[in-house]
Design a protein around this nucleic acid. Sequence first.
DNA 1: TGGAGACTGTTCGTGGACGAACGAGCGAGG
DNA 2: CCTCGCTCGTTCGTCCACGAACAGTCTCCA
Lengths: 163, 163
Amino acid sequence: MAHGAPAVSAANRQRSPAERIDREAVRAYRLEEQIGHLIRRAHQRASAIFDAVMRGFDVTPVQFAALAKLHDLGPTSQNLLGRMVGIDPATMFGVAGRLAKRGLVRQGPDPSDARRILLDLTGEGRAVVEGMKSVGAEVSARTLDPLTPGEARELQRLLARIC
Amino acid sequence: MAHGAPAVSAANRQRSPAERIDREAVRAYRLEEQIGHLIRRAHQRASAIFDAVMRGFDVTPVQFAALAKLHDLGPTSQNLLGRMVGIDPATMFGVAGRLAKRGLVRQGPDPSDARRILLDLTGEGRAVVEGMKSVGAEVSARTLDPLTPGEARELQRLLARIC
DNA sequence: TGGAGACTGTTCGTGGACGAACGAGCGAGG
DNA sequence: CCTCGCTCGTTCGTCCACGAACAGTCTCCA
């Protein structure tokens, strides 16, 4: 708080604690400077670029994240795969189902644990994920286009720190 | 492409253009380094922090963005308000409806254009948005907690550039 | 002045995000 | 060996995101 005004104004002295308002903070608030808002906007733009570049594959960003990690790991349970890429179990249920319905993934039992469902890439799934990985750098490059290479690396580093 | 291998490997020379795969790019692809994936994860964390700090208000991040901008602008049409904060018209329809149903916003006709619906804060809406703005800095501060103040400003600057 | 083209809000469909609650299965400790 | 607590997948409800299509309205220009 950089200004000299009292933290609680005269107008607020009568109110209940929950309704006390810092007028100076209200006046100073700028939505477009808030980190959450900037991230939300950036997320919209990055998704749009992914859609444009990956159009031909008909796979969403989240579906691709699951496929890509499954490609790295080999057969993996739904929950674990979701944990690796940041998809909660309730969401993963739908994602895995859609990938299975499209024939990109197989859902099988885990012999060592009857609770788990093992996901595995099908041949088509492998072909799709490899095709997408081979042009994946293009998505990041286009998204980072407004920045210099140094700035791009810095942004990547800072985002990784706040995750 | 930093390596010296040919852009199209021998194994791919026989395939159709759509199936040509750069094996080296596939091998080098790291999901967790892709900017889109980092932004998605950051968005999840920022939303969780917003929910924790703003729990008492029962207003989502997107609803707050609309309320905050409406507070800045005064009565505004749905489409324009959406354009100011990055909410597309189809989404804005739902957001405005929920805010109106909760009594935070009034929807009225625009005398000068029969197509438009003017949104306006109610007394309760104003109280809520001012209460939220007065603690809004807390959300950004918590989100940026892992960074130094200089890094935080840099991240903000870089995100603004890629929007 | 009349019509073409643009804009506003609406609807539908698909997909992601997640809290909450639930049953079935697992595993460690009593 | 058995129970308690945890994990796994599932379901429900609410919300955001957005492409596509549509009807009503407006504007501008031929």
